[in-house]
């Protein structure tokens, strides 16, 4: 991993101080913390879910991270982590770059931004994920109809974490990979090995929880970054 223990503590302290939250408990860092690589966050259409990319921007360190619209993206070389926030339609040009990243060992997080899409829009979303990255997703589920007893998503990897749900969930469909988050009985997030890389799909956007300083969401994100 490309971040030192000191950097991690600095980043999380900065992020937590912004939101007034306590520091997360520190666990031993990954062995590989020598070669710095970038974390890059790409925002899809700003009208889709702007608070999601704002959430990543709020908690990730500026010195280590790049935040940009994907239309301006270069081939994404030298990234250990790529985050595609609130994805609605994934252009083939971007999907190709992501596939290359995965083949280079990058961890790619794809966060669905289609929970509130209409029927036609969602079909396009589903098709672009399937054709671009081989990801299969099921139709959106309104977690709040009927009312829920507990409004949380439970992540099981890379650390056990509980984060607030985001009303509309786009669950991963049956496919190879490991389900790494659940909302009750519903799968929420999936992890797949793609060559040497890791593809993580999140069906309930994490960015909004980051933007309001959810400590557990921040911890989960950093845990993924550290394992990348």
């Amino acid at each position: 991993m490309d971040i030192t223990r000191r950097e991690f503590l600095g980043y999380t302290a900065g992020a937590m101080s912004v939101v007034g939250a306590p520091l997360p408990h520190w666990t031993a860092p990954s062995v590989a913390e020598r070669r710095p690589k970038k974390w890059r966050v790409f925002c899809s259409d700003p009208d889709v879910l702007p608070e999601s990319s704002a959430g990543y921007r709020a908690v990730l360190p500026e010195r280590r991270s790049q935040f940009e619209h994907w239309e301006q993206s270069d081939p994404m070389t030298h990234c250990s982590l790529v985050i595609m926030s609130s994805v609605f339609l994934l252009p083939e040009k971007i999907a190709r770059r992501l596939r290359i990243c995965l083949q280079r060992g990058t961890t790619v997080i794809v966060e669905s931004g289609a929970g509130f899409a209409n029927h036609l829009g969602f079909r396009k979303h589903r098709r672009s994920l399937r054709e671009g990255l081989g990801l299969r997703v099921a139709a959106p589920v309104n977690l709040w109809s009927p009312p829920r007893a507990t409004p949380y998503v439970d992540y099981t990897w890379p650390t056990r974490t509980r984060v607030r749900d985001f009303t509309r969930l786009v669950p991963p469909a049956n496919q190879p990979g490991e389900i790494i988050a659940w909302a009750g009985d519903l799968p929420v997030a999936l992890r797949q090995r793609v060559g040497p890389g890791t593809l993580i799909y999140i069906g309930s956007p994490l960015g909004p929880a980051l933007s309001i300083g959810d400590t557990e969401a921040i911890r989960w994100l950093y845990a993924v970054a550290l394992s990348a």
């Binding site: 608070e51 409004p151 309001i212």
Partner: peptide
């Protein structure tokens, strides 16, 4: 219950 306080605050400010 669905939309928690912190989200409401930030969205309204924004």
């Amino acid at each position: 219950e669905e939309v928690p306080y912190n989200e409401v605050y930030q969205r309204c400010v924004d």
